[in-house]
Each structure stands twice: as C-alpha cells, then as structure tokens.
Amino acid sequence: MTGLLVNDRDIVFPGQVLAESIEFLPGEDVIREKEQLISTKIGIASINGRFVKLVPLTGPYIPKRDDIVIGKVVGIGLNGWRLDIGWAFEANLNLKDATSDFIEKGADLTKYFDYGDYLMTGISNVISTRIIDLTMKAPGLKKLGEGQIIKVGSTKVPRIIGKQGSMITMIKDYTGCRISVGQNGVVWINGDSPEKEHLAIRSIRKIEAESHINGLTDRMKEFLEQEKK
C-alpha cells in the first residue's frame, strides 16, 4: 500500500496529512478529508495495517462509561452526592449506587462521604456531557483515606500504570507507598513517610514529562534505584 506519509510512532501535529490514499482508514483523533487522513491533535501515530490512529499526548479528560476515576465530593443533596471528576461538569453519585445500608429519610449523609472527601468511583453511565452517573458498587471502589492528591494529564495515565500495571507496581515496590490512579488523571498517594510520598510524586511527574520517549521503564528503574540509595 502506498500513500502513507508518516511512520509508526512518529510525533504528529494538528492538520498534518498522515496518509494520502483511500485505502487507509481513520482511527481515533484522525479525520478523513477526501483522500487525505488528517491528524487533529498532537500525538503519536499508530499504524496497524490499513488503520491509522493517534495516541494523543495532550488533551482534557472526557468521561467514558466504565472508567475508574477519583473524584472529590463538592456537593451533597437529598439523594446523593455531587463529585468533581476533573471534567467540565460535576458527576452524580446516587444514594442507591453508593451504599447498601438502609438510610433513613433525612439522615445526615456526611456520615458516609463528607465535603472534600476523595472517592475512588466508577462511571456507570454517561447520558450526555452534563449527566454522568457514578457508582461505588464494584470491587476496589472506596473512600480514599489520608494521603496526597496530585493531578496529571489524563493522556499520561496509561504510561503511569504501564503494561498490566508494571510501572505503578515498580513505583509501589520501591517507595512502599499505596497509590491509586484514576483514569481522569487524579492520583492518590499514601506512604509511611513524607519522603517516600515525595519520591513517588517525583517518579510520577517524571513519567508525565517523559512519557513519549522510548525506554521509559528502564529509565524509571534507574531513577528509582538511584533515589533509593
């Protein structure tokens, strides 16, 4: 097949022509204009046979169903909570999706989740950009205790987690911290000492800055070895 203008794993920019042939198909963040495939974001080109897509390097978090996110309680209503999940609009956590307990009418909901609490929640439904339903009823979803919260770009989350969790496991092993990463780019870190938490934060910041450069795992291992001494 001819007409491909970029190589696999090339960094591409908005408006760049990736392929000039009807034989190629546009994937995520790629549009077709007549014969041309055009990238719409800054990202890494990913070519799989006839399929040309983009792995974006930057961009806002857009909620998707079944995402696991970390949200902050910003509102309490009569029948649930409202959470800030790093999207333009707040998400709803309904009472019946939050707990199996029997709650009496007019009970004080702050006993469960109070203002400012961070929750590990799942997105159960995205009806529109403005109506997003959350749930706590899945394994591993819970209120996060004391710890530090940092925010990273949501496009970097797959690199922070690594293949089958390899990267995050490595940071956990070296620092001894408990770390939870939401797909919205909110990271919760809880360690035995502030130094260890700080090392985990620096590791994550390093991944964020260098996520698109090859050989990240080796570099991170080196970095953590060096810092541990």
């Binding site: 920019f13 908005p14 408006g15 963040d29 549009i31 204009e33 055009i38 719409t40 974001k41 800054i42 974006p56 390097l57 930057t58 961009g59 806002p60 496009t155």
Partner: peptide
C-alpha cells in the same frame, strides 16, 4: 493545540 483541543 497544546491544550489538546481537536482541530483540522
């Protein structure tokens, strides 16, 4: 472009 807003 830096913010990742899709553009042609």
């Amino acid at each position: 472009a830096d913010a990742g807003i899709p553009m042609k």
